[in-house]
Amino acid sequence: MSKISMTVNGKPASGEAEGRTLLVEFLRGELGLTGTHVGCDTSQCGACVVHVNGEAVKACTMFAGEADGAEVTTIEGMANPDGSLNAIQQAFQDHHGLQCGFCTPGMVMSAAALLKDNPKPSEAEVRDYLEGNICRCTGYHNIVKAIMAASGQDVTAIAAE
């Protein structure tokens, strides 16, 4: 077991983990941050996306020890300082970008990374960026609409599905 320390959602966090412990397991099991979901264990679904040093990472593809000393943001750290939903989260709610909600944390984290790099993505760019995130419920239409709305774009012309 090794001691691992990192900054998670702006606060110091530490715990112990074996060398083979994945970041997603460390966040959920050792730190109790269960908003990051484990969906496939094969890096296919994107439910475990977090930000490590400002970059979107599938937490099932990274060992916890690799994040030692890193800045990690999980879905729990995405809310506004007053606890209200941030613009992306609110857009997912307003535009029905979720159904069962299992993929939502990863989708929100991926959307945040996309909007950081591309503040006004086209519909095609959003769909392309989300290629690594699987949703089995919504058909993606309202997720795409929510992300475009969060970017400040007018989505009234996009028909509901």
Rank of each mutant, 00 (worst) to 15 (best):
C45Y: 09
A59Q: 07
C135R: 01
N86R: 06
K58Y: 12
M1P: 15
T156R: 12
N9E: 08
N133Q: 10
C103D: 06
S122Q: 10
G152P: 09
A113P: 00
E30V: 15
G69D: 08
I147M: 11
Q89N: 01
G132T: 03
A160M: 10
A87S: 14
E161N: 14
V52S: 13
C40G: 13
C40N: 07
A111Y: 03
G32T: 02
A67Q: 08
D94L: 01
A160T: 11
T21F: 10
A17M: 11
I75G: 00
T104H: 05
E125H: 06
C40L: 11
R28Q: 13
M109Q: 12
A79T: 04
T156F: 00
S84Y: 10
N133F: 07
P105V: 03
V72L: 08
K116Y: 01
V8S: 12
G139E: 02
Y140E: 03
A56P: 12
M6E: 04
A59V: 12
M148S: 09
E55P: 10
A13T: 01
N80G: 14
A59P: 12
L130K: 11
L27N: 04
P81Q: 03
S14M: 13
R28L: 06
G139W: 00
Q99W: 06
R127S: 00
A150L: 12
I158Q: 03
A113D: 13
G29D: 15
T21S: 15
V72C: 08
K11N: 15
I75N: 07
N142P: 02
Q99Y: 11
L27E: 02
A67W: 07
T138N: 04
A150I: 01
T21Y: 05
